[in-house]
Amino acid sequence: MPSRHDGPVATRTWFVATEDHAHGGGATLIGFWIYLMSDALIFASLFAVFGVLGRNYAGGPGPKQLFDLSLVALNTGLLLASSITFGIAMMAMESDRVKRTMFWLVITGLLGLGFLCVEMHEFAELVAQGATPQRSAFLSMFFTLVGTHGAHVAFGLIWLVTMLIQIGQRGLRVENRRRIVCLSMFWHFLDIVWIGVFTFVYLYGVIR
């Protein structure tokens, strides 16, 4: 237990940690880490299959003919920026600043939505060119890998909107803090996966 010399910040932190432990926060975080590891295995499997089938074009177009790296770089910038804004939201949450936390979470959501819009535009352009998942094994795995990541981002946005509603109604309670921490882990995990997608699928595909 904190002593009287530790100050109000240390005392408040100790009580928050104690209350979070009492509500099963430690078990929640461990469970979420296990989920992230299982999700990492799913993406590792998709990367492995893409590595095997990534050059099977079936006489169709390949990465050099299909990918616009400037568009992909824009998308990468949006997702990286959203991780930064999420980090700012986490710092605001640690300072008990509800409105500032919600503001930066909204900015994060808008950047994530922009990422999805650019990705859907890219998919629409590919389909318009006849580069559909049925065209080749390469395109099948491209749509599967990138689409799976996009579906995770969409889920993250739904989760983020839900948290904004809960924070607006109940403030930064212990339960909401724990959920925001889990969402932050999930969001940064998607950022790391996307760096792999950008490097392995797009950049390496164009320059090789």
Rank of each mutant, 00 (worst) to 15 (best):
I88C: 00
D39Q: 12
G112P: 00
Q129G: 07
T148F: 14
V98E: 10
L66G: 05
G147P: 00
R179Y: 10
A128H: 01
L29M: 14
F198T: 11
E122S: 11
K64M: 11
L36W: 12
W159F: 12
V201Q: 06
I165C: 06
S82K: 06
F86A: 07
G7L: 02
G54W: 12
I195D: 08
V201W: 06
S83P: 07
V146H: 03
A40N: 08
G156R: 03
F189W: 15
F200Y: 13
P63F: 06
D39R: 12
E119Y: 14
G87M: 01
V72T: 06
G156S: 09
D6Q: 08
F186C: 03
F86V: 00
I88H: 00
Y202M: 02
A22Y: 12
V193N: 05
I42G: 00
G156W: 09
G130Y: 02
Q134N: 04
I167W: 09
R208M: 03
L79I: 15
Y204W: 10
H23D: 13
M91L: 09
T76C: 04
Y204V: 12
A73P: 09
D20N: 12
S140E: 10
E125R: 14
A27Q: 12
G147A: 01
G168Q: 07
L46M: 10
G25V: 15
H121E: 01
H149T: 03
A137P: 09
G60H: 03
E119I: 08
H5S: 12
M1G: 13
Q65G: 01
H188M: 10
W14C: 05
T18E: 15
L113C: 11
V201C: 06
L79Q: 09
P2A: 01
L203M: 09
L157W: 02
F186W: 15
S83C: 10
I84S: 08
I192T: 14
A131Q: 04
L164E: 08
A17W: 14
R135M: 14
G51W: 06
M93D: 03
I30G: 01
S82Y: 05
D20E: 15
W33S: 14
F186V: 03
A73C: 02
L29V: 13
G196M: 09
M102G: 03
T108K: 04
